[in-house]
Computed example of a mutant assay.
Amino acid sequence: MYAKFHTANPLPRSRRHRWIAAGVLGALAALAVIAVVTSPDATAEPDGFTCEENTSANLVTGSGPGDTSSGQSAILGFHHAFYVDRSAAHAQRFLIPDSALTVDNRLQIDIDAIPAETRHCVSISPLGAIGDSQRWAVTVTEFRPDIEPWITRQTVTTRTVDRVILISEITPA
């Protein structure tokens, strides 16, 4: 009643299992190669870290080493010493000598509380002068490992001391 077809003998079961196992292993090897080739570089910056250097009349943005030639440069220098150098001694070069930030090693304690892999970006806009001081609106964005960027807004006051511009006060905005 049913037709019989003559077919070649199928592969023995053990041979089929070997071919299936070889195929699975080949696929796993290919996936491993893809994973290694596409894995992120361990020396790359944290995801989402960008800090374009920008200098205009009303906005300075960056994360560079700064100097004491202007208020914006002193602010950049302070934050570079804080986040990159991780040194209170370096940061103090941008502060007036009697700054409250230098009391009781507070500055180094604050630096040590931040993960060493943290990157930063500073944006600085002028708020205006008060007497011999200049006030600045400062936004610091921290890029810490494994969390969303952390944004801090500050009002920073700078003034000229012995022909250099130093930070006299940093307060939350």
Rank of each mutant, 00 (worst) to 15 (best):
Met1Gln: 12
Ala3Gly: 12
Thr7Ile: 12
Thr7Gln: 11
Ala8Phe: 13
Asn9Ala: 15
Asn9Thr: 15
Pro10Leu: 07
Leu11Cys: 03
Leu11Ile: 13
Pro12Tyr: 08
Arg13Thr: 15
Arg13Asn: 13
Arg13His: 14
Arg16Asn: 13
Arg16His: 11
Arg16Pro: 08
Arg18Gly: 14
Arg18Lys: 14
Ile20Gly: 09
Ile20Pro: 07
Ile20Tyr: 09
Ile20Gln: 10
Ile20Trp: 09
Ala22Gly: 12
Ala22Gln: 11
Gly23Val: 05
Gly23Tyr: 04
Gly23Thr: 11
Val24Glu: 00
Val24His: 02
Leu25Asp: 09
Leu25Gln: 06
Gly26His: 04
Ala32His: 03
Val33Phe: 10
Val36Gln: 03
Ser39Leu: 08
Asp41Pro: 05
Thr43Phe: 08
Ala44Asp: 04
Glu45Asn: 00
Pro46Met: 00
Phe49Tyr: 01
Cys51Ala: 10
Glu52Asp: 13
Glu53Leu: 12
Asn54Gln: 14
Thr55Gln: 09
Ala57Asp: 11
Asn58Thr: 15
Val60Phe: 00
Thr61Asn: 04
Gly62Asn: 01
Gly62Gln: 00
Gly64Met: 02
Asp67Glu: 01
Thr68Trp: 02
Thr68Asn: 14
Ser70Gly: 05
Gln72Val: 14
Gln72Gly: 13
Gln72Ala: 15
Ala74Pro: 09
Leu76Gln: 15
Phe78Asn: 08
Phe78Asp: 08
Phe78Ala: 11
Phe78Gln: 06
His79Ile: 07
His79Cys: 11
Val84His: 05
Val84Leu: 04
Val84Gln: 07
Asp85Val: 07
Arg86Trp: 08
Ala88Tyr: 07
Ala89Gly: 08
Ala89Val: 15
Gln92Ile: 10
Arg93Val: 04
Phe94Cys: 02
Ser99Cys: 06
Ala100His: 11
Thr102Cys: 08
Thr102Ala: 14
Val103Tyr: 03
Asp104Pro: 02
Asp104Glu: 11
Gln108His: 03
Ile109Phe: 09
Asp110Leu: 12
Ile111Gly: 09
Ile111Ala: 06
Ala113Thr: 13
Ile114Glu: 00
Pro115Ile: 03
Glu117Arg: 10
Thr118His: 03
Cys121Phe: 00
Cys121Val: 00
Val122Cys: 03
Ser125Pro: 06
Pro126Trp: 04
Leu127Phe: 09
Leu127Asn: 09
Gly128Asn: 05
Gly128Arg: 07
Ile130Gly: 09
Gly131Leu: 04
Asp132Phe: 13
Asp132Tyr: 12
Gln134Glu: 12
Gln134Phe: 08
Gln134Thr: 10
Val138Thr: 14
Thr139Phe: 03
Val140Arg: 02
Val140Gln: 02
Thr141Pro: 03
Thr141Arg: 07
Phe143Leu: 00
Pro145Val: 06
Ile147Asn: 08
Ile147Cys: 04
Trp150Cys: 03
Gln154Gly: 04
Val156Thr: 02
Val156Ser: 01
Thr157Gly: 08
Thr157Asp: 10
Thr160Lys: 13
Ile165Arg: 04
Ser168Pro: 04
Glu169Thr: 15
Ile170Trp: 05
Ile170Ala: 14
Thr171Leu: 12
Ala173His: 01
